[in-house]
Amino acid sequence: MTRRGFFKWLGIGGLLAAGGTFAVRRANAGNPYYSGPAASNFDGRTFFNPGGAEPRGFTDLLRWQLGGGKEPWPETYPSPFPAARPEPRVNGDGLRVTMVGHATMLVQIAGLNILTDPVWSERVSPFSFAGPYRRNAPGIAFDDLPPIDAVLLTHNHYDHLDLATFDRLVATHDPHIVTPLGNDTIIRQTAPTARVSTGNWGDVVRIGNGTRVHIEPAHHWSARGGSDRRMALWSAFVIGTPAGRIYHVGDTGFHDGINYRAAGDKHGGFRLALLPIGAYEPRWFMQGQHQTPLEAAQGMALCRAAHTVGHHWGTFRLTNEAVEAPLYALEAALQNVGIAPARFQPMRPGQVWDVPPAERS
Results as ranks from 00 to 15, higher is better:
Ile246Ala: 03
Ala18Thr: 03
Ala27Cys: 03
Asn183Cys: 12
Val124Leu: 10
Asn156Asp: 10
Asn320Trp: 11
Thr59Tyr: 07
Thr198Gly: 03
His290Asp: 00
Asp60Thr: 08
Gly350Ala: 07
Arg96Pro: 00
Trp234Gln: 07
Ala164Cys: 01
Asp60His: 15
Arg85Gln: 06
Arg212Val: 05
Trp73Ala: 01
Asn28Lys: 15
Thr116Leu: 08
Thr315Tyr: 02
Gly36Ile: 11
Leu62Cys: 11
Asn49Leu: 10
Trp201Arg: 09
Val97Arg: 07
Gly338Ile: 06
Ala194Val: 07
Leu112Asn: 07
Leu16Cys: 13
Asp265Ile: 13
Ala322Arg: 05
Ala194Pro: 01
Met99Asp: 05
Gln189Pro: 00
Thr252Met: 07
Arg224Cys: 02
Ile277Leu: 04
Gly14Trp: 08
Ile277Arg: 12
Phe7Ala: 12
Gly11Cys: 13
Pro74Asn: 06
Thr76Val: 13
Thr185Cys: 04
Phe127Glu: 00
Ala329Tyr: 06
Asn200Arg: 13
Gly244Ile: 06
Leu10Asn: 09
His157Tyr: 02
Trp234Pro: 00
Gln108Asn: 10
Met105Phe: 00
Pro326Lys: 15
Pro88Leu: 11
Gly257Phe: 14
Gly240His: 10
Trp9Ile: 09
Asp117Glu: 04
Val24Thr: 14
Ala218Gly: 11
Val355His: 05
Gly268Ser: 11
Trp313Tyr: 15
Ala110Leu: 10
Leu16Asn: 08
Ala150Thr: 15
Val355Cys: 00
Thr46Leu: 05
Gln345Thr: 11
Ile277Glu: 02
Gly111Asn: 12
Leu115Gly: 04
Gly69Gln: 08
Glu216Arg: 15
Trp234Asn: 01
Tyr77Ser: 12
Ala296Pro: 01
